[in-house]
């Protein structure tokens, strides 16, 4: 199994759990942890397949994550209870619930739209941040390259001090660009995962609601 497949499998299992049991931030932390473990094993000389195998099967890892949650109820007993006792009650109340849903739709509908728009605007802000980070990286890299390149004509035209100054500034800019590159990749990864987890969390929320009503 490749790392990508493992991470996808694990995150699929994590988003299938209700956010009350495992919060998105907890889910993200555990995903980060296992990804770091695989990366470190690969860096230590293992192949990707070996590293993933050493970490364990996604099912086992998922079970361990759930078992380690503070005040988590026994994972096995919960579904059995919910299928026995409360389901007839829910069936009885379901026409009332749908009626109530329709009557109150002007209220929750607008709220839902507002919430979705807020979420969407947050994504735009996040995306803008990512783009601007990369913009800073690109401008540093380009200016560094140009400054280094211009040190040659400066040496011919103006002499040594101007050329050295240009070369120095160019190297400094390139150095900053390299630092920014790592910062950018880390931030891009982080925002991509955040988007993935929250989006799928939101989708799973709606799926459950449909099934219940």
């Amino acid at each position: 199994m490749t790392k990508t497949v493992f991470m996808r499998n694990l995150s699929d299992r994590l988003v299938s759990v209700t956010p009350e049991r495992i919060s998105p931030s907890d889910a993200m932390r555990s995903l980060d942890y296992y990804e770091e473990m695989i990366d470190d094993r690969v860096e230590d000389g293992m192949s990707e397949e070996e590293a993933v195998a050493a970490v364990g099967h996604p099912d086992d890892v998922f079970r361990d994550i759930l078992a380690a949650l503070p005040s988590s109820p026994q994972p096995r007993t919960e579904p059995a209870h919910s299928s026995e006792a409360p389901s007839p009650e829910k069936k009885k109340s379901s026409p009332w619930r749908t009626a109530l849903l329709i009557v109150t739709s002007p209220v929750w509908g607008t709220l839902l739209v507002a919430a979705a728009l807020v979420l969407f605007s947050l994504y735009i802000v996040l995306f803008a941040l990512v783009v601007s980070f990369w913009g800073v990286f690109a401008s540093l890299a380009i200016s560094g390259a140009v400054l280094i390149a211009s040190s040659v004509p400066l040496f011919i035209g103006e002499g040594m001090p101007a050329a050295m100054a240009s070369l120095g500034m160019g190297l400094a800019a390139l150095g900053l660009a390299i630092l920014f590159f790592f910062l950018c990749t880390a931030f891009t990864r982080f925002s991509a995962r955040l988007t993935d987890v929250t989006f799928r969390g939101a989708v799973s929320l709606f799926r459950r609601k449909e099934r219940r009503s």
Partner: peptide, 15 residues
């Protein structure tokens, strides 16, 4: 100690 044993321990110690 395995990865999945270590993780909850780290979380507990942090908490």
């Amino acid at each position: 100690i395995s990865e999945s044993t270590l993780y909850p321990i780290l979380r507990r110690l942090e908490a």
